[in-house]
Simulated scan of single mutants.
Amino acid sequence: MAKKNQNEMSFLDHLEDLRWLLVRSTVAIIIMAFFTYFISDYLFDVVIFGPTRPTFFTYTFFCELSHTLGFADSICITEMPFIIQNTEMEGQVNVFIWICILAGFILAFPYILWEIWKFISPALYTNEKKNAKIFIFFSSLLFFLGVIFGYFVVIPMSVNFVATFTVSDMVKNQFTLDSYIGMVKTSVLASGLFFELPIIIYFLTKLGLVTPTFLRTYRKYAIVLVLIIAAIVTPPDVVSQTIVAIPMLLIYEASIWISVFVVKNKKD
């Protein structure tokens, strides 16, 4: 049976397309999650719990940077004074399943973008439909860069902060497995999705919902928000806060220029 023309499709037809988008995307995530099952030892021991060790790449990089800048060992991390414990009978099983699903989502993200593009492409102009590969490439690239930023910057800075912060020497840090994994999931996904901001701004500008003037007007609020986030997730030193804040501010500035580009093309 031939597929209906976009102009002839009813609201229920669109819902049916959306349903199959979700079904195919879910299947892709499950397949990728099943693949991660075979590398689960490496996934947990090296990747997930890597930021809990002083030998993690980010910590050694900061230590070398500290020496280069003449700060001696001021931001070197030699120990992680905490333990991670499981307090629920099914805790490790749940964590195993959700981490595999998270990894599956990250690996399947380009395919999910392709499904989203197929869903929205009928509403685009012919010349815009030709940009599918560009859309998939840059959206995936930004997402993966965000995931890398979250893993190598946000997570280790957060772990270091909560590990060294204490209200009293009488209190020892013993974090639950669920709380640590929750922090990992939130940091990685939030960073990945935040790096999609230029793509989101592109489409919002195309729809007329956002303008360069709007983004510039609220730039000062965005800067304050980014600095607050950087201050929360990093130790109280300028170097760490700067490393977290600069990429986020660059993403926001890039979004402004993309909005300018879209508006200029509309006028032409």
Rank of each mutant, 00 (worst) to 15 (best):
I200N: 03
Y125N: 01
P81I: 08
V93W: 14
D268H: 12
F195R: 02
I199D: 06
F261Y: 15
R19D: 06
V188W: 08
L209G: 04
N7W: 02
F57E: 12
F175N: 02
R24G: 02
L177K: 03
A28N: 04
T205E: 08
I48W: 06
G208P: 03
L204W: 07
I116A: 13
D17Y: 08
G208L: 08
F195E: 03
I48T: 08
L189N: 07
T205V: 03
S140H: 05
N265I: 05
A245Y: 03
K4E: 12
V167C: 00
I251M: 10
F35R: 11
F144P: 00
T217E: 13
V95H: 01
I83M: 09
M9F: 02
W257F: 11
W257H: 14
I246H: 05
L22N: 10
T55I: 07
T205Y: 06
M1S: 12
K185D: 09
C63H: 12
E64Y: 05
Y42K: 13
K266V: 09
M183V: 11
F161Y: 14
T217Q: 13
L250W: 04
S25N: 12
G104V: 06
K4Q: 12
I112D: 01
I258M: 11
E90S: 12
F62G: 01
I101W: 06
S139V: 09
P122A: 09
V233L: 14
I116F: 14
L145V: 12
I99L: 14
S74Q: 13
T186L: 15
M157R: 06
W257P: 00
G146Q: 05
L141T: 13
W20S: 09
I251C: 02
D237Q: 02
F165G: 02
N94M: 11
V23F: 11
Y37L: 11
A163C: 06
A72G: 04
K220N: 13
V93P: 00
Q241G: 03
Q174K: 03
K118I: 05
G192L: 07
P122F: 06
Y180M: 10
S158P: 06
P81L: 07
Y59C: 07
I30F: 14
C100W: 01
D268A: 12
Q6D: 10
K130A: 12
V210A: 10
E79G: 14
V188M: 15
I101Q: 05
T87E: 02
M183W: 04
W98E: 05
G91H: 07
G50W: 00
I134M: 14
V260P: 01
F119H: 02
S168C: 05
T211G: 03
L197C: 08
Q174Y: 01
I101S: 05
L225V: 13
N127C: 00
L207N: 09
A28C: 12
H67R: 14
I31G: 10
P110Y: 04
F161V: 06
C76P: 10
R219V: 02
E88M: 10
V210H: 08
Q174A: 08
N173R: 09
T78Q: 11
M1C: 09
V263R: 13
F96P: 00
V27K: 07
L209M: 13
I256A: 03
V239N: 01
T166Q: 12
P110A: 08
T217F: 10
S139Y: 09
L189R: 04
S140N: 06
V46G: 00
I134A: 15
